[in-house]
């Protein structure tokens, strides 16, 4: 983690406690997660008690406290996607990758996330892979998508 980047994120926001969430968004965007060290620096520079930063960072879904996988597979579980069959998709992802939503595979390649509605309900179920939208998904398409992201990866199929 380069301190210069964090420095530039904090630039112009120092001693402004209300900027906390915006700062955390930027840190999340640039580093992929929010580390303890980052929180300590932010606490110092914004003048917000560490416990509050920890509380905020753990409250909002947008922030993750652990590094995320290289590929983030986000499953829309909004109402419209749910009625159109988001559940089998989630089952596909979790059984193909062997991790639950919010978790990252051991090799650090994949993270599965859930999101409530991405605003593209008409084309559901929707899955995004690192921010790219895939519409009208089926378990088969998702399987190929995940494979295509890392063809050499051996599948850790879970049988429970």
């Amino acid at each position: 983690m380069s301190p210069e980047l964090l420095d530039s994120i904090l630039e112009g926001r120092r001693s402004q406690p209300h900027q906390l969430i915006e700062v955390l968004h930027d840190v999340q965007e640039h580093y992929g997660y929010i580390s303890e060290d980052a929180m300590k620096t932010i606490s110092n520079d914004l003048g917000v008690p560490l416990i509050e930063i920890y509380g905020v960072a753990s409250f909002y879904k947008a922030f993750s406290l652990k590094p995320r996988g290289k590929n983030v597979i986000t499953m829309c579980t909004g109402t419209a996607c749910h009625v159109r069959g988001a559940k089998p998709l989630l089952n596909q992802a979790t059984s193909q990758l062997g991790v639950q939503p919010g978790e990252t595979t051991q090799d650090g390649l994949f993270t599965i996330e859930k999101v409530n509605c991405l605003g593209a309900c008409a084309f559901g179920p929707i899955v995004t892979e690192n921010g790219d939208y895939h519409h009208d998904m089926s378990p088969g398409k998702l399987r190929k998508l995940i494979k295509s992201l890392h063809p050499t990866r051996t599948e850790e199929t879970s049988h429970d």
Partner: peptide, 25 residues
Amino acid sequence: ARGGGAFVCGESTALIASLEGKIGE
């Protein structure tokens, strides 16, 4: 301001807390 992925922050007092940089309660 960007929301942080919390449905409850649509509620007026929670949204205001969030704008103030706090937990969206």
